[in-house]
Design a protein around this nucleic acid. Structure first.
Lengths: 107, 107
DNA sequence: AACTTGTGCAATCAAATAATTGCATGTATA
DNA sequence: TATACATGCAATTATTTGATTGCACAAGTT
């Protein structure tokens, strides 16, 4: 839990990915989140810390509770990284597509 | 380098992400890949092993060289995971869109 | 056959990670 | 004000990770 603080590093952990999925449905408190996992509240708290350091989640105090919610914009950065590969698979798909249509023509 | 062998874990490492980007342009041998990094050939070799265990790359022997190439299909799994969040940010965008058009109507 | 080249694998080590336990703090409620 | 609840932070520990060094081996070259 030191210097990395990188989105890709953040989503590498399956628990953190599950937390993000949970928060995609609704904003929740650390305690409620922890109930969904077979681990201690403190462990979840650490995951939340990492996620908020990466700005994948944000939180607001509400009385004595803290509500965590997804910060969807940061997710787009992963999408952005994928873009370079998406180009390739779309090209491949188009190539396959033209092969298929040629096939049809020859039939 | 044990049991995990998970795509998200694989792309967590910056060197591995860079290798994937390199391979997006062309298939390369381990030695050529290593030249691009400030690290030993063996370290790169380990990264390649992890990447191929995850099926993010594949390789073929060519004489005494081994050619590694991107296995683009596996990348789509990351895209698939992002799907659940993409839905959200597209909704938000649409909401913004309707706010903007209302604004225009009222002007 | 001897040598060079390209590569993987094993052992080792430092650093990072994830989880636990215990403690501290702030906010409500009796 | 005393108590209970929600949460974060620190210290500790086991596991995992990433890198290095050295060795083995197979495929070409001389």
């Amino acid at each position: 839990m030191k210097v990395r603080r990188d989105i890709f590093q953040a989503i590498a952990d399956p628990t953190r990915r599950a937390i993000l999925t949970l928060l995609a449905f609704q904003a929740l408190t650390p305690n409620t989140i922890a109930e969904h996992f077979d681990t201690t509240r403190q462990a979840v708290s650490k995951h939340l810390k990492i996620l908020s350091e990466c700005e994948l989640v944000k939180y607001r105090q509400q009385g004595r509770e803290i509500i965590y919610e997804l910060e969807i914009d940061k997710m787009k950065e992963i999408d952005l990284w994928l873009e370079q590969f998406r180009k390739i698979w779309e090209t491949k798909f188009n190539q396959l597509d033209s092969v298929l249509s040629t096939f049809r023509i020859n039939k």
